[in-house]
Nucleic acid binder design. Structure first.
Lengths: 191, 191
DNA sequence: GGTGAAATAGTTCAGAA
DNA sequence: TTCTGAACTATTTCACC
């Protein structure tokens, strides 16, 4: 995908405000609103860009962590990716080249719950076949506190979490040291 | 910031499509468009959410890397944060607790240029006071290829890059092994 | 990419809950 | 304080150039 000057102006503006009207985009580019509409629609339909609500981690008191993982092979890696595909607490999982072959960004609504996804049965590290892992709690997110948090707010009515690890029998959940999975009816958090 | 059921529905929908009309949001929540307008404006004005264009890393052939850094103290860390504040290639810098105290997400438009920001004078690791660093090129971004890339498309007219390291005298830039900083007039990339 | 008219959507504000 | 309804303004859409 290549962008010309006009596309660049459009995308730049939509980065600042994704709801900018076609009219305004027209003024910025010197096109009519129909002209930019076609550009914007092309960018969206080709999935070159997506216009989406990001959440302010600071405002919602989200706690973020980076998890580094070394798996014993590609099967474990694939199993992990599949298992956490719909986990609301996983923002991104990168597969990487190097000593660690997987780096994940995870999020939770308090420190206790972040601890759960660091060590409990529902954590990334709990998967069989992980040789080594490191967990880095994030103190501060620099440059922009806005992040594309996935699915945190949807359903809340499942009886089994997307990762298939039930919260109910978990000691941390029982003793109120974890708010549980946001996708299930067991969720006790504020979101 | 706390969200009620209505806010949650609104934000959920805006995550899927940030340009959803107030009318549609009204239908989803059972409110009138005025009702949701207030909600949406509150969310935006309080900076709880931001609606923004994300770029598809795959579509634009972006190369991503995770950089782990251990600094010799808080001064180095602050200096680094300040220096890369406006670097278009830095997506996020997290300050963390643990063996590494800084984790950055960086982006480039080809492998050669990614290599530059891994080792050249304009790289994060070039800062004085770094004890140790690791660089993990990302093979694959899972779950969503969309990322809030900052400032990549703006200006392109500076004579000195935001990090203050000139591209012109750099050997990699001269020998076409780096497209240069996207914020400057020396930029030779496709974006 | 642009036009112009029709259709949708957004805004304002007085008043109800 | 929060939402509604109706009138008004702005924006978007559609078929066609």
């Amino acid at each position: 995908m290549k962008l010309d000057e006009v596309d660049r102006k459009i995308v730049s503006q939509l980065q600042i405000d994704g709801r900018t009207t076609l009219e305004t985009l027209g003024k910025i580019t010197g096109y009519t609103n129909m002209g930019v509409r076609k550009r914007v629609n092309n960018l969206l339909e080709s999935e070159s860009i997506r216009i989406s609500a990001l959440m302010n981690l600071k405002r919602f008191n989200f706690f973020l962590a980076v998890v580094l993982i070394e798996t014993d092979g590609p099967e474990t890696l694939q199993r992990l990716l599949k298992r956490f595909e719909n986990c609301p607490r996983v923002v991104y999982i990168f597969t990487t080249i190097g000593g660690f072959n997987m780096i994940a960004l995870v999020v939770a609504e308090d420190k206790e719950t972040l601890e759960s996804i660091s060590m409990e049965k529902c954590s990334l590290r709990s998967e069989k076949g992980i040789r080594r892992s490191e967990f880095y709690p994030v103190m501060d997110v620099n440059y922009s506190p806005f992040m594309p948090i996935r699915r945190y707010l949807a359903h809340k009515d499942l009886s089994v979490p997307p990762c298939r690890v039930n919260c109910k029998p978990c000691a941390r959940y029982k003793f109120e040291r974890c708010v549980g999975c946001p996708a299930t009816k067991y969720y006790k958090g504020h979101l």
